[in-house]
Design a protein around this nucleic acid. Structure first.
Length: 489
RNA sequence: CGGGGCGUAGCGCAGUCCGGUUAGCGCACCUGCUUUGGGAGCAGGGGGUCGAGAGUUCGAAUCCCUCCGCCCCGACCA
């Protein structure tokens, strides 16, 4: 076990917190509920962002940027959305500070500088964006609009956890406008697929694709599509959502277009987003009691070369040649010739940080014409001939990526249950948390009752679930397909 | 916002009940020497308005009051 990190078995959530801080992903900050994303954590985000950004561009989207503040009157316009977020909004009421006459050296909001209209710090940008789209759209020829923005948003959460739920977080939000329901629905489903592909291919995190029930749906959406991942403690984590917004925002902001028949029609909309929460998902999907385990495709450092016991001319020569070759193959590699720390310390440190592959080079190895290559996911070590190192490393990175996905999928399958009676349902949720496929009668009341009794929610109505007649797990009313229940983050 | 806990060096803590040397320990940090194939050892050294304010007292980290902050558990949530 790594120094000063709780084990998963002892205390899963403490393990997560320890890892985030000890591995240098984030730090606490002076602002309640907000964290500092440290370089190692931010590098992960940059890698995620770069891959996603390319996927968005490849599907025809462009980036733009809209204001941080939303005038209250705009925010109110789409009622359901406003209601959904009202309880967690930060509000700007003043635009100036002044010296506090009662407390020397202190400042106060200047009562003379009260804003005529209060500004909401965006919890999401539909309002400000649709207010803008109104001016951009006259005819079907202006559609579709396919815009994404990379931004920060603020949701004043009562309880926060690093990456998983913070008051301010980074994300991307796509906001598209279409001339037909079919086009908008196609867009929402396409982005749902993009997120799925990203989660599985890059994060090595298997997900269940599905639609949200009415209770869990984004406020203001007609349909919300989600990808749900299982963390190592069996709890579900919503990793990305894509919304079909229908004409709700178009109606609220009066965004109409002339269709090909010269008739006015409200525009159809989607929005979709993933956030820095994905970093939390990555940590909880793969890591172990020794530290982070990062999938090679997103790891800020993929390979570290460590001289044993310390740099020498002979080691430098081999290491530098190896680095050049690996870099030429697009591998992110560093050579740690820092003499402050001994090899053992470095081994532990890079394991903590999740570097997928470690190459150790010592005098003994050089005599034998080999290096020692260790993989982070299984901690296996092997001696590889120096001339085969580059080829072996590239293959190994690929193996690790695949193994992580396989391992995560096996964990999910081990902890997924098909349940038909209430007693087993309750028992499983209490004793062996995981995913449960069960019948549900389709009503909000039943969903709420189940949540109250067990704390489990409907994570999604899986898109690929086969039609199957059955009886609701709680009420016994008829149901024609199973839905996915779990306790969630 | 309710219930509980905690603020003492960068981090983790002891000391607080029962007031009394110069506030201490581990890790980290700095210097030097010896080490070096899985988190090195020894020696020396630096670092504190004891969360803030006000009070009781000859004397307060310790007792009283007020305030602030953080963490955990609930309700809410990506």
């Amino acid at each position: 076990m790594a120094k000063d990190i709780s084990t998963r078995a002892e205390d899963y959530s403490q393990w997560y917190n320890d890892l985030v801080y000890k591995a240098g992903l984030a730090d606490t900050s002076a602002v309640r509920g907000c964290m500092v994303i440290k370089p190692h954590g931010y590098a992960l985000w940059e890698n995620m962002r770069d891959v996603l950004d390319k996927m968005f561009k490849d599907t025809g989207h462009v980036n733009a940027y809209f204001p941080l503040f939303v005038p209250k009157s705009l925010f109110e316009a789409e009622e359901k959305n406003a209601e959904g977020f009202a309880k967690e909004c930060a509000i700007v009421t003043h635009y100036r500070l002044k010296a506090d006459p009662n407390r020397p050296g202190k400042l106060m909001a200047d009562p003379e500088a009260k804003l005529e209209e209060e500004l909401i710090v965006r919890p999401t940008s539909e309002a400000i964006i649709w207010n803008t789209y109104r001016d951009w759209i006259q005819s079907y020829r202006d559609l579709p609009i396919l815009i994404n923005q990379w931004a920060n948003v603020v949701r004043w959460e009562m309880r926060t956890r690093p990456f998983l739920r913070t008051a301010e977080f980074l994300w991307q939000e796509g906001h598209t406008a279409h001339a037909s329901k079919a086009d908008a629905m196609k867009e929402a489903l396409q982005m749902h697929d993009v997120y799925t592909q990203f989660a599985e291919e890059y994060m090595a995190m298997p997900v269940i694709k599905g639609a949200k029930s009415e209770n869990e749906r984004f406020a203001g959406a007609d349909d919300t599509f989600t990808i749900e991942a299982m963390m190592q403690d069996g709890k579900a984590l919503q990793a990305g959502t894509s919304h079909y917004l229908g004409q709700n925002f178009a109606k609220a902001f009066n965004v109409k277009f002339l269709n090909t028949e010269n008739k006015e029609e409200y525009v159809y909309a989607t929005s979709w987003g993933v956030s820095t929460r994905l970093i939390g998902a990555l940590v909880m999907t793969h890591s172990d009691d020794d530290g982070l385990i990062l999938p090679p495709k997103l790891a800020p450092i993929q390979v570290v070369i460590i001289p044993i016991p310390k740099p020498s001319e002979a080691i430098d020569l081999i290491a530098e040649k190896m680095m050049t070759e690996l870099k030429s193959k697009g591998i992110k590699v560093i050579y740690d010739r820092d003499e402050k720390n001994r090899p053992g310390f470095k081994f532990a440190e890079y394991e903590l940080k999740g570097v997928p592959v470690r190459i150790g080079i010592g005098a003994r190895d050089i005599e034998n014409g080999v290096v020692e290559i260790a993989r982070r996911d299984t901690k296996e070590k092997s001696s590889i001939k120096i001339e085969n190192t580059v080829e072996h490393t590239i293959q190994l990175l690929d193996d690790i990526q695949n193994n992580l996905f396989k391992r995560a999928k096996e964990l999910r399958e081990r902890n997924t249950h098909i349940v038909d009676d209430w007693d087993s349902f309750v028992k499983i949720l209490e004793e062996t948390p995981g995913f449960i496929y069960a019948h549900w009668d389709g009503t909000s009341e039943t969903e709420k009752a189940i949540k109250e009794k067990t704390k489990a929610t409907i994570r999604c109505i899986p898109l690929d679930a086969p039609e199957e007649n059955g009886k609701c797990i709680l009420t016994g009313n008829p149901s024609n397909r199973r839905v996915l229940f779990a306790k969630a983050y």
